[in-house]
Simulated assay, not measured.
Amino acid sequence: MSIVRYLTHPQVQIDPSVPVPQWGLSPVGRARTEALANAGWLANTTQIVASSERKAIETAEIIAAKLGVMIETREAMHENDRSATGFLKPAEFEQVADQFFAEPHLSVRGWERGVDAQSRIVREAEAVLSRNRAGDVLFVGHGAVGTLLFCHYSGHPIDRAYDQPAGGGHVFAFARETRQILHGWRRLEELTR
């Protein structure tokens, strides 16, 4: 059985003066990813497919270097488009994110609608999986679209109740052939022991 994993990038270097898609990993995020890259559970990974945002590419590069696997980037795997608001302070961001998940058919403050972001990330995942290449697949992306993908494959409605825990650096997995969820969000540290 081939396994498909969706990994969210861990902690980033927050800089309000830099567009969010250009943020890179923080030292903590980099250290967490390096520990993951040394874990054996990724040994059967033959494809690493990342969002083209810097933090996702940096995460994927650390893992790919250890596994000796090339990275494919896909522009449309980006996080939900929040460019209408730009950087929001954490408390305000959480309120808007709550609305994004609670009202997925509406554009909250100009953000990409949840249903549109979900269609986009599912389309990207299915395009990769339709190639039927041997081995496990690792998608490296973001929390919101990762949650939307999880909701799709698990048959749940869009709801923040299914969001990864705070902090990033979480992974869920599903069976490639059946698309059945194998496990929900788990912290990287749970999988590196």
Results as ranks from 00 to 15, higher is better:
R176C: 06
H152R: 09
L88P: 03
D98G: 04
A173G: 10
H156R: 13
V96A: 08
L106Y: 10
G155Q: 11
Q164Y: 05
W111R: 04
L188Q: 14
N132A: 15
H105V: 03
D116S: 13
V145W: 09
E190S: 13
W185A: 12
T178L: 06
L138A: 14
E124H: 04
R109P: 00
G135H: 03
G146N: 09
V115S: 10
V140T: 11
F174Y: 13
V128I: 09
P90V: 12
T147L: 11
A97H: 01
R131V: 04
N132S: 14
R123V: 01
A166V: 15
F139H: 00
H170W: 15
C151F: 05
L149S: 12
T192Y: 00
Q180M: 13
E124W: 01
H105C: 02
G114C: 04
G146Q: 03
L182S: 07
V122Y: 04
H142T: 02
E190V: 02
G141C: 10
D159E: 11
V115T: 15
K89C: 03
V137T: 15
H156C: 12
L182Y: 00
W185I: 10
P104W: 01
A91W: 02
R120K: 01
I121R: 02
R113H: 03
E190L: 07
H170R: 14
L188R: 07
A91S: 15
P104R: 05
L188K: 07
I158H: 07
A175G: 09
A97K: 03
D136Q: 09
A161D: 08
T192V: 15
G110C: 07
G143N: 01
I158K: 06
A102F: 05
V145M: 07
E126S: 00
I158N: 02
S130N: 09
I181T: 08
E189Y: 06
P104V: 05
R176V: 01
T147S: 15
F150R: 11
D159T: 11
P165H: 05
A134W: 02
